[in-house]
């Protein structure tokens, strides 16, 4: 097996430079990891004041707010937000559907994965990469270090194309790894032959925060296909003879919309982020726009 892409196809100096402008903010991450630049759900002895609570024996006396004691006559301690690291687990989809068109959406997916990884590494977070298709493999175990971006890029460039998409098997395998809870960024088109229900079911079983990066293309919803054709699924190899007219396309779009609605609904219900990247556009500007505006789809 040969690498799916040349390294130059995935990244260059300009692309790496553009990554430094990205910032991603994670919220309410459980403590336990090493201090980093991400807010955690734990309140402790950080620098940013968050709340008060009544004093209990054992509390740090330095945290008592004496001014409040003078006004109210009761002892309260100040609570500060602890800053901890946010493990980022990037799961790029390497199924065959990512390599069919031009430009292949897998290329965009890997560039997005690299971008997200670079952001996290730049914030002292640990990053692990777990590409998947019909199954999941461990490409990069979680580790931190700003200097690891180039190494990571090199490893992503050596990645190989997979087979059929199988979210159920892949995410089960990921869950079985027993990784510390972190942010799971799944970069995929989410086109699992088993349907959106299978995808959301698999996602729902993850204990991590989720960031869903959906790789889309305009022809996903408006395919440029008409007439009597034999549609061949590039992953399953299944073929269907169909006469495509306007009504067929209407039904197709309805099905696609239901798929999208299902994904959005899941993201909202789960509190996951959902970012849609147009594979025909540059990755970094799209990510920058999303992070700067905070306008996740979900």
């Amino acid at each position: 097996m040969s690498p799916a892409f040349e390294a130059s196809e995935l990244y260059d100096a300009a692309f790496l430079e553009s990554l430094t402008r990205l910032r991603i903010i994670a919220t309410r991450v459980k403590g336990g990891g090493r201090p980093a630049e991400q807010r955690s759900r734990d309140l402790g002895s950080g620098f940013d004041f968050r709340d008060y609570r009544p004093y209990t024996p054992g509390d740090d006396l330095r945290a008592i707010d004496w001014n409040l004691y003078r006004r109210l006559g009761r002892v309260f301690v100040r609570l500060y937000e602890e800053l901890e690291d946010l493990p980022l687990y990037v799961l790029p989809d390497l199924s065959r559907s990512g390599f069919l068109e031009d430009p292949p959406r897998a290329r965009t997916g890997l560039r997005a994965s690299l971008a997200l990884s670079a952001i996290s590494l730049n914030q002292h977070d640990s990053v692990g990469v777990f590409p998947f298709s019909e199954d999941l493999e461990v490409l990069v175990r979680p580790a931190a270090g700003k200097r690891r971006v180039l190494t990571l890029a090199s490893q992503l460039a050596n990645i190989e194309a997979g087979g059929e998409t199988n979210f159920g098997a892949s995410l089960s395998r990921f869950g079985a790894l027993g990784l510390r809870e972190g942010l799971v960024a799944i970069v995929s088109d989410f086109f699992d032959p088993r349907g959106i229900e299978a995808v959301t079911a698999a996602l729902g079983r993850l204990r991590h925060r989720l960031l869903l990066v959906q790789l889309t293309r305009s022809t996903d919803r408006d395919p440029d296909i008409t007439g009597d054709v034999r549609l061949v699924d590039c992953e399953t190899g299944g073929a269907a003879d169909v006469s495509i007219g306007a009504a067929t396309l209407d039904r197709y779009r309805a099905a696609y919309d239901r798929f999208q609605d299902g994904l959005v609904s899941f993201a909202r219900k789960r509190g996951a982020g959902l970012v849609r990247l147009d594979v025909d556009q540059e990755v970094v500007p799209q990510l920058a726009a999303v992070f700067e505006s905070g306008s996740y789809v979900a």
Partner: peptide, 11 residues
């Protein structure tokens, strides 16, 4: 006419 598609899910 044979047309490969990324997924036959919606079709």
């Amino acid at each position: 006419r044979e047309v490969p598609v990324v997924t036959s899910l919606f079709w």
